[in-house]
């Protein structure tokens, strides 16, 4: 329980840090990019929204930085992220909540598949260390971990869409169809998600394999594995229940630490496939200088990652008896 409370404290602290970073970064930049952006949009959006933006970015000169900060925090707590400039007059919240499910779905499915598959392959590779698979797979996945996600995505588009015409080029569903819960729409979503998911899984899996292999190499030399061998237990049982089970725990911690990397890769992959999720929206916000939307997206992505990390930590605390024994 104490561990979980400590992780919760860290969660809140990091959340506060992310929110504060969001406040500080535009104010640290030379030449005030926000007022330049507002000048460009002057006359195109209504005066009330303009005033709200000025307040949000601290261009109201009658407030000092601390008052601005308090007001900023107050807005965030009440979920007021202002109006999107590029999707005017839609509020930022509406734009973001439309994109979130696409990203969350893709992220959850690919992360789970990559984790399970990678952990399993890593287990086998470590078990047969020095064998053919190890000699081939380990260097292969070291190399694969260095391939940019988005470039692999581009190559996948070239092969499967442009060359073989097997799968759609991009976007989340067929052009012109509307979002319904029908069978045909579901198959569209699946066929459009296939290539992005495949690229993410292929690039993410290498990391799981390598960490699992390295953990497993450690547990395989433990006395309890030797004991199990001496008792003549079936090898499969030793591999999974003795060595594998104990090697997974550090992998779970690694899961928490790698979430940031996975999400970064995911966002770039979405951009390549013009997938209607947060990554693509992020690019839109950046290239249109839609700062309110960009700030909200940064916070949403960070909060999502923090929640995932917290869940992994809690799972770790529940699964690992040692974390409980200390307190």
């Amino acid at each position: 329980m104490a561990v979980i409370i400590r992780r919760l404290e860290f969660f809140l602290l990091t959340l506060w840090a992310a929110i504060t970073l969001n406040f500080i970064i535009p104010r640290l930049m030379p030449g005030n990019p926000v007022s330049a952006m507002l000048a460009r949009y002057h006359g195109r959006i209504n005066p009330a929204a303009m005033k709200a933006l000025q307040v949000a970015f601290g261009l109201h000169t009658n407030q000092n930085v601390f008052q601005q900060y308090i007001e900023y925090l107050n807005n965030i707590i009440h979920g007021q992220f202002g109006t999107s400039v590029s999707y005017f007059p839609q509020p930022v919240m509406t734009v973001v909540t439309q994109a979130m499910p696409w990203t969350l779905g893709l992220a959850a499915i690919t992360t789970i598949i990559a984790f399970l598959l990678g952990t399993f392959i890593g287990m086998i590779v470590a078990w047969r260390r020095g064998g053919f698979v190890d000699g081939l797979a380990t260097p292969l996945f070291v190399i694969l971990s260095a391939v940019p996600y988005f470039w692999l995505g581009l190559m996948a588009i070239y092969l499967f869409s442009v060359h073989w015409h097997l799968l759609p080029l991009g976007f989340g569903y067929d052009e012109g169809s509307s979002i319904t819960f029908s069978w045909s729409f579901t198959t569209q979503v699946i066929s459009h998600a296939m290539l992005p998911a495949l690229t993410i899984i292929i690039t993410a899996i290498g990391g799981w394999i390598l960490t699992m292999r390295n953990n497993m190499v450690g547990t395989l030399s433990e006395d309890y594995v030797r004991m199990a061998r001496a008792k003549g237990l079936p090898p499969l049982r030793i591999m999974i229940l003795y060595a594998g089970r104990n090697a997974i725990l550090p992998n779970l911690t690694g899961f928490a630490l790698s979430m940031g990397f996975v999400v970064s890769g995911l966002l770039l992959t979405e951009i390549v496939f013009t997938y209607p999720g947060v990554g693509y929206l992020f690019l839109q916000a950046v290239s249109n200088e839609d700062y309110p939307l960009m700030q909200a997206l940064f916070l949403f992505v960070t909060v999502t990652v923090l929640v995932a990390v917290l869940l992994a930590d809690v799972a770790n605390a529940i699964l690992d008896p040692r974390t409980r024994a200390h307190h």
Partner: peptide
């Protein structure tokens, strides 16, 4: 630890955009 868990790409995008 905080910098370790904050996703890098969104942070880079925000800084580079500003």
């Amino acid at each position: 630890d905080i910098f370790l868990v904050i996703p890098a790409l969104p942070l880079m995008l925000v800084i580079a955009a500003y």
